[in-house]
């Protein structure tokens, strides 16, 4: 059966690596995002690598009107539909402190926008049976920290949403993978101080695909972040509130 992936936020390097990885397998890709010129270049690249369908579609997490045309386009493909979400935005915490109205955008990009999209397409995924949803969250969503708790809280909301969606889609033979990347070598982190054990987008994409195949529920990538976050989550709040980790 042929597979088609809707990839939201497809201009990010992680999404690009993921799109290539599924193209290599012969799956189709619908690359969704705002920079159409860039998405079109990626679409040609995916087609050259083996994707039978590779198209660029306009998607803006802050513009729900952009959602339905993507869903309509995807439904024209028979076979299995899958969705992967790579959207999110992380303005520096001090920018948010200076202008709290930025919070709305962060929450829309990282949580409510993609959740609205998934909520709309969910009945279609249920109808088609074995759909997979990949939602990229963040280790930042595991605990609120002084450095980026606005972004973290949006991702935490998204994690909880994905957990509920998993509960729902499982009944219809579908599956949801929550991905929590640690530090990754992307445009968002290029030049940031204090990065360590940084993983390449290709490595993360490979991990995600393996998690999809094995039907893992929650993926930390690289794997050791599960242990790092295990420790961070285990610190009692009365201690944690005084730390800056």
């Amino acid at each position: 059966m042929n597979n088609t992936w809707i990839i939201l936020g497809a201009t990010s390097s992680m999404a690009r690596a993921f799109a290539r990885a599924v193209s290599d397998r012969g799956d189709g890709v619908l690359l969704c995002g705002r920079d159409m010129a860039d998405l079109k270049a990626s679409a040609v690249d995916c087609a050259a690598r083996g994707a039978p369908i590779a198209e660029a579609l306009a998607f803006d997490a802050r513009d729900p009107k952009s959602f339905q045309p993507i869903i309509d386009r995807a439904l024209r493909e028979d076979g299995q539909l899958h969705v992967s979400v790579f959207v999110g935005s992380m303005p520096p915490q001090d920018a948010v402190d200076a202008d709290p109205s930025l919070i709305a955008g962060v929450v829309t990009d990282s949580y409510t926008g993609p959740a609205t999209f998934l909520q709309r397409i969910a009945p279609e995924l249920e109808a088609r049976g074995g759909a997979t949803v990949v939602g990229v969250g963040s280790v930042a969503g595991d605990r609120g920290r002084i450095g980026n708790y606005v972004y973290g809280s949006a991702k935490a909301g998204f994690h909880t949403y994905l957990s509920g969606l998993r509960n729902r889609l499982t009944r219809a033979g579908g599956h949801v993978v929550t991905v929590k990347p640690g530090f990754s070598d992307t445009a968002m982190t290029w030049g940031l101080e204090g990065m360590f054990l940084v993983a390449s987008p290709e490595k993360i994409a490979e991990d995600i695909l393996r998690a999809v195949d094995k039907k893992k529920d929650v993926l930390y990538t690289p794997f050791f972040w599960r242990y790092i976050m295990g420790i961070i989550k285990a610190i009692p709040e009365r201690v944690f509130k005084k730390l800056s980790v």
């Binding site: 390097s13 270049a41 990626s42 040609v44 690249d45 087609a47 050259a48 690598r49 445009a187």
Partner: peptide, 18 residues
Amino acid sequence: RLDRILDLDLDAGEVEVE
């Protein structure tokens, strides 16, 4: 990071790449 195939013409044997 600019490493994509921009056009592939297998009939002519030409490729355009970043």
